[in-house]
């Protein structure tokens, strides 16, 4: 059986490989800080396997996480901007391969979806081939590997490790932001342990008429929207509103279908992202980039879509989840 931990090891190997490439790059502006960051992150992905299994202490990983945060926030992590194909080369190759360039890209979702659909019948003896607890993730990893193989056969790069070199270029340009979603998820789990969601739930239940489903849906969706506006992203809002309303009221009391409630709840939060200056990358950087006079101009252009869409999410959740 292909376990989900194998997938995390694949990710860990990638981080280690990037750390290794950076360590060998003498021209890198922060060679050792950056290679330690990606290398340590890679090791965390391996060590996590035993933390999850309960056979290794979690606090060791906790310390490693704090070190990662320190490396990232003290300027020791930088983008080495490794070389890649030039603009002329890329244009020539885009003309040469044309739409074939999309074939490897489409291989990924195609293989993923096919494997997920076939998973129940893919068995060796009586053992399922793909980890039944994490079918999608395992299928995705296989899809990603298959797509790289297709790309190598189709595009025939000079160096077979081109995918690794090029992905290093991308991860370095993403930088510390690559770690943020996982840290926000960690924060959500921590918040819930400390009772933040319960506290918000107590506050919200004051304004929630007992036994009203539509009120619950409204408070969950609008709460996701408001917390996202305040905190700048739905990732931080989701654990709070879900512990407050989504789980206890919508799923436990009203027996809503969990994937529908949670997927649409997150999208209600995305409507908030369209309306908030806290989401600077999306809403404040573009006006600067486009030399706009009104730095809130992008937000004003988006509000007219965000608000009706929030309404649509409320309606969709009410009718699809219950």
């Amino acid at each position: 059986m292909i376990n989900v931990e194998v997938v995390y090891w694949l990710v860990g190997i990638l981080f280690l490989a990037w750390g290794f490439l950076i360590a060998r790059d003498v021209a890198h502006p922060k060679r050792w800080g950056s290679s330690s960051f990606w290398g340590l992150l890679g090791l965390c992905f391996f060590y996590g396997t035993w933390v999850q299994a309960g056979t290794a202490p979690g606090w060791v990983l906790g310390i490693a996480v704090l070190v990662l945060v320190l490396l990232a926030s003290t300027g020791l992590l930088r983008d080495g901007k490794p070389g890649t194909s030039g603009p002329a080369e890329r244009e020539a190759s885009a003309a040469k391969f044309g739409n074939k360039l999309f074939i490897p890209a489409l291989t990924l979702p195609a293989v993923t979806v096919i494997l997920v659909l076939l998973a129940p019948v893919l068995k060796v003896g009586n053992v399922p081939l793909l980890d039944p607890k994490n079918t999608t993730l395992v299928a995705l990893a296989i899809g990603a590997v298959a797509a790289v193989v297709v790309a190598l056969m189709l595009l025939k790069p000079k160096h077979p490790l081109t995918p690794v070199f090029e992905s290093r270029r991308i991860i370095e340009s993403i930088g510390w932001a690559a770690l943020l979603p996982q840290m926000l998820s960690t924060l959500g789990i921590l918040f819930t342990k400390a009772g933040v969601g319960t506290a918000v739930g107590t506050l919200a239940s004051g304004m929630l008429p007992k036994g009203s489903l539509i009120a619950g849906v409204l408070v969950y969706c609008i709460g996701m929207f408001v917390f996202t506006v305040l905190m700048g992203n739905g990732f931080a809002a989701f654990p709070i509103m879900t512990a407050a309303i989504g789980w206890p009221v919508l799923v436990q009391t009203f027996h809503g279908n969990p994937p529908v409630v949670f997927a649409i709840g997150m999208l209600a939060g995305f409507c908030g992202t369209l309306c908030t200056p806290m989401a600077a990358n999306f809403n404040l950087v573009p006006p600067a980039l486009l030399e706009m006079k009104n730095k809130y101009g992008v937000i004003s252009a988006q509000i007219g879509t965000a608000i009706p869409l929030l309404g649509v999410n409320v309606v969709l959740m009410y009718f699809l989840a219950f």
Partner: peptide
């Protein structure tokens, strides 16, 4: 992150230009 090697190689061959 597992998807980046794929994106990297097709970018190298001009995905954005296409």
């Amino acid at each position: 992150v597992a998807v980046l090697p794929l994106v990297g190689i097709i970018e190298y061959f001009g995905l954005q230009e296409k």
